[in-house]
């Protein structure tokens, strides 16, 4: 009897912990959405207009259009670089690198992946920013600077994840291709096909991380709510606005609610991306597992 009770308590305790965790996600979605209802009701489609003047006394505007576009442009631009470079490095590590090279490079990437994003922000402002000024940019904090720092943040992740998926390709596939007379590129094609689920997963995660990253864009992007026209323009993505204003806003105000709407956008973006990632990887996996 005693043992049964112990077992029962144990099982219910653990399931409680799991329920809490499951509830957390729903609570997050719920709270962020309910707090943004006021803005959605009062501002409506104006939320997607280009102008954001939240503290203008007579006629405040709460349009996230420009920020959203800037966020997307910055994310796409940076992701493309990170994808290409990360894939190249991973292929090099997988196919050509000497053991020593591989070990050293992976180790350094691991350490860089541990650098807190606020520290990378500091690097962007104090070190890269100075270079930009010396090279004649009119703002130390700008689109390009943010993009470089974001690349440093996500490249280790992209590279090591891609590398790991490439390492998992079974030898017999490579040998099979070679035995048919395939050259390097044709063999690589087979390996990439096999590693595709892992690589796509890495790519979309990189995109997601850049889109949601706050500290770096807050510190390095420059903060101007203008649509980016050149690489050296200062910009303000969604998360930067959210990070800088949410701490100072009056709780319950329209401005507060509009900021929650931004949070809601960021959250939905990452949830949608996550869903998409799962879908695509599952589809790709059908080509690998029977």
């Amino acid at each position: 009897m005693m043992r049964k009770t112990v077992s029962f308590i144990f099982v219910s305790l653990t399931s409680l912990a799991a329920v809490i965790v499951a509830a957390a996600l729903f609570a997050i979605v719920f709270f962020i959405f309910t707090e943004s209802i006021r803005a959605i009701k009062e501002v409506g489609f104006g939320l997607f207009s280009p102008n954001w003047y939240p503290v203008w006394e007579t006629d405040p505007e709460f349009g996230v259009g420009t920020m959203l576009l800037n966020s997307l442009i910055l994310t796409v631009w940076t992701s493309v670089w990170v994808w290409t470079i990360g894939l190249s490095v991973a292929i090099y590590l997988h196919k050509y690198a000497l053991n020593k090279e591989r070990e050293v490079l992976l180790r350094i990437l691991e350490y860089v992946s541990g650098i807190p994003s606020v520290v990378l922000g500091l690097f962007g402002v104090l070190i890269l920013g100075n270079w930009f000024l010396r090279l004649g940019a009119w703002s130390a904090q700008n689109f390009l600077n943010a993009s470089i720092v974001l690349s440093v943040l996500t490249l280790p992740f992209m590279t090591s994840l891609t590398f790991q998926s490439l390492e998992k390709v079974p030898r017999q596939l490579v040998e099979g291709a070679i035995a048919l007379g395939a050259k390097d590129l044709a063999v690589m094609w087979i390996e990439l096909r096999y590693a595709a689920p892992g690589i796509v997963n890495a790519m979309l995660s990189v995109f997601n991380r850049i889109f949601g990253e706050t500290m770096i864009v807050l510190m390095v992007a420059g903060g101007a709510n203008l649509l980016v026209r050149s690489l050296l323009d200062p910009v303000r993505p969604l998360t930067a606005t959210l990070g800088s204003e949410i701490g100072e806003v009056a709780v319950g105000s329209l401005h507060y609610s509009a900021l929650f709407f931004i949070a809601f956008l960021v959250l939905s973006g990452s949830l949608i991306l996550n869903l998409l990632t799962n879908r695509i990887t599952r589809k790709l996996e059908r080509w690998i597992k029977g």
Binding site: P170, Q172, L173, E175, G176, A177, I178, A179, L180, G181, A182, K183, A186, I190, R193, Y194, A196, W287, I288
Partner: peptide
């Protein structure tokens, strides 16, 4: 070219991660 003339099949079936058609066409394409 030599490996095209003397080609090999392995112990464990190793179909490439592509369609049936593309598997057979792979050797031709390369």
């Amino acid at each position: 070219e030599y490996r095209r003339r003397v080609t090999m099949v392995f112990q464990k079936p190793n179909p490439f991660p592509m369609s049936i058609f593309d598997n057979v066409a792979y050797g031709l394409r390369i």
